[in-house]
């Protein structure tokens, strides 16, 4: 397993948001976390990426190394990137500067970084010199996914990539994700079951802070048996 999470507990004050969750992502695999709002999906992503503290007995191993409660920048540098749900880019910087920003910590040439994102999403090229605050939600999402790929990460955590996007743009996001499938491992929080069924190698269904079901082969995942009950 590339990512192995076991006994993950997360508390917000005295309230327990995640109860002994266990998740695994294999190299090259595309895994999905599905569940209703408030089920604890984003909390799991935040705990894995170091944004939220995991409980004392929690075990989070990434690429064979224990990363539980490490600092977010250390986790990012180890090859695990998190694409937030809110699609926030640095609005005062240009699109080009937003891309450069992701290149410097990984010693990637800024030009190569821009070229990589233009390769994934060619239409970004004509927006490179405008302030990123002027991008639409779909453009921002694709910029953020592309930016997270700079420096060849081993695992991407993507939180609700299609939330709030129009149908046409969801299709563009789908195309980009399917293009990346197999090259980089992904753990994606998603409520769009159509997208999940088309792409998933593995699905975790969550309810009230607990992992209720795991579909661990492609056939099961595609049929997505009874997933609706978790949404």
């Amino acid at each position: 397993m590339l990512l192995e999470v076991e006994h993950l507990d997360v508390f917000y004050g005295k309230a327990q948001a995640v109860h002994s969750a266990a998740i695994g992502v294999k190299p090259g695999e595309m895994a999905f976390l599905v569940g209703r709002n408030g089920a604890g999906k984003t909390t799991i992503m935040r705990a894995i990426s170091g944004f939220t503290r995991a409980g004392a007995d929690s075990r989070i191993h990434f690429n064979g190394v224990d990363i539980a409660n490490h600092r977010p920048e250390e986790i990012a540098r180890s090859g695990l990137r998190y694409v937030f749900q809110d699609k926030r880019v640095i609005t005062k910087l240009t699109v080009r500067e937003n891309i450069h920003l992701a290149a410097y910590p990984f010693h990637v040439s800024p030009k190569a970084a821009v070229a990589k994102i233009c390769d994934i999403y060619p239409r970004i090229e004509k927006f490179l010199n405008i302030k990123a605050g002027g991008l639409s939600g779909g453009q921002r999402q694709l910029l953020l996914i592309g930016r997270a790929l700079i420096g060849n990460p081993k695992l991407l955590l993507i939180d609700e990539p299609t939330e709030g996007l129009a149908a046409g743009i969801i299709e563009d996001v789908f195309k980009v994700l399917s293009q990346l499938k197999g090259d980089v491992s992904m753990l994606i929080v998603e409520q769009n079951l159509d997208l999940v069924r088309r792409l998933a190698d593995r699905i975790y269904a969550m309810k009230e802070g607990r992992i209720m079901m795991e579909l661990d082969n492609s056939a099961d995942s595609r049929s997505g048996s009874n997933l609706e009950q978790f949404l």
Binding site: P72, E73, I90, L93, L101, A102, Y104, R147
Partner: peptide, 24 residues
């Protein structure tokens, strides 16, 4: 410089800087 871009990022959202791998 690149340093300037990081400084502007801190102004807008320093948490995002952390997740991009910077020692904010």
């Amino acid at each position: 410089s690149p340093f300037g871009i990081i400084i502007k990022t801190i102004k807008e959202n320093e948490r995002r800087g952390n997740f991009l791998g910077y020692n904010i």
